[in-house]
Nucleic acid binder design. Structure first.
Length: 278
DNA sequence: AAACCGGCCAACCGCACGCAT
DNA sequence: CATGCGTGCGGTTGGCCGGTT
């Protein structure tokens, strides 16, 4: 098939933006608003690719950007969001007003990665380096051990403590694809952080595949197109995506492994992403 | 003062996705 | 349903800058 290039590369500038280019871009967007990036360079009199203009605006020129160092609170929030979302920088950025995905990505790679490594945690999995895989279907003893490891991951000596609280308003009887829960909150040093994740049932079916009593403390979070299952704070019970989809007891279904009251927070990713809890 | 080195960050590149036709 | 277009996203690169030798 092949794609046409996003712009005529032969006649575009590359590299660092000049003040004049910045001014032109700002002036144009102030006058006409964002959007239509492909035609913007020509209209604004810029010898730049549309993508380049968009990037420059979003990452640097936008007036609502918060410049300066990341705060400790932002640090912690990024770590927690990364544990949930992985390298979904744009989603993480959406939870940090004034920060861009690029900024957070850079900050992660240069600061937080090192910080986690200092804690002895794998920056990608948020698990102890050299630790075992998260919650495979295993014997009860193995599960207990893994859950203990999980708690260690969530509560390293120097790491902030947090827990996820699913509200009780999670009902599947809403009759609407909007949420099991209204929100999720993390305790950070005793302070609650409302992540305000968009929570919803898998859109095609609202009927739980397992008894509803076990669903009361569980939340299904829909982030983009991906659904995540989140356990309740006290481990009163949880359901996984597999159960919701009717694949309970399948190999991918690991909800048997999450009955410990000690598990503060876990989630399930779609199987294709590894299907591992955190 | 010059060379070297490592960290940081803006920008680029390629791919994926959603939408229109 | 297939195709093309516009846009957004995530990984990577390259240049700048400050610190060290």
């Amino acid at each position: 098939m092949g794609r046409s290039p996003c712009c005529e590369k032969a006649h575009t500038n590359k590299g660092a933006w000049t003040k004049e280019e910045d001014q032109r871009l700002i002036a144009y967007i102030k006058a006409h608003g964002e959007g239509c990036w492909r035609s913007l360079p020509k209209a604004a009199g810029l010898l730049r690719c549309g993508k380049s203009c968009r990037l420059r605006w979003i990452n640097y020129l936008r007036p609502d950007l918060k410049r300066g160092n990341f705060t400790e609170e932002e640090d912690e929030l990024i770590i927690k969001l990364h544990a949930i979302l992985g390298n979904k920088w744009s989603l993480i950025a959406g939870r940090l007003p004034g920060r861009t995905d690029n900024e957070i990505k850079n900050y992660w790679n240069t600061h937080i990665k090192r910080k986690l490594l200092g804690w002895g945690l794998d920056p990608q999995t948020h698990r102890p380096i050299g630790g075992s895989a998260a919650f495979p279907v295993a014997s009860q003893q193995q599960q207990q051990q893994q859950q203990a490891e999980c708690n260690n991951v969530l509560l390293p000596a120097q790491a902030p403590t947090f827990s996820c609280k699913a509200t009780a308003a999670d009902s599947a009887d809403e009759g609407h694809s909007s949420g099991l829960v209204d929100d999720e909150r993390y305790d950070v040093h005793g302070q609650e952080l409302n992540l305000d994740l968009s929570i919803s049932l898998p859109h095609h079916s609202l009927k739980p595949a397992i008894p509803t009593a076990t669903t009361t403390a569980a939340a299904a979070a829909t982030i983009g197109e991906e659904s995540y299952m989140v356990t309740g704070a006290a481990g009163k019970g949880a359901i996984c995506l597999c159960c919701h989809l009717g694949f309970q007891n399948s190999e991918a279904c690991s909800c048997q492994a999450i009955q410990s009251p000690h598990v503060l927070f876990r989630y399930y990713r779609p199987e294709e992403e590894g299907g591992q809890g955190v």
